[in-house]
Amino acid sequence: MQKIEIDPISRLEGHGKIAIFLDDAGDVAEAYLQIPELRGFEQFCVGRPVEELPRITPRICGV
């Protein structure tokens, strides 16, 4: 099966890649979106003073 990979997806913040598989007729058989990033906000915000979070969570996405 032919595979078209778009990596990285450009013109956006954040990380993503797309894999598109084509069947023998050249039609799309399946497409996958993958997010290849790990930073850990879900964990490292825990236990921080709540008034500090407006200064931490904006760094999830600064666009």
């Binding site: 790990l38 930073r39 850990g40 879900e42 964990q43 490292f44 760094r59």
Partner: peptide, 19 residues
């Protein structure tokens, strides 16, 4: 390291477990 390095207080496995 910036804000993402606050995660260095945990192992990557611990971060992944939470996420």
């Amino acid at each position: 390291g910036g804000i993402p390095s606050l995660g260095n207080f945990w192992t990557t496995e611990e971060l992944a477990h939470r996420m």
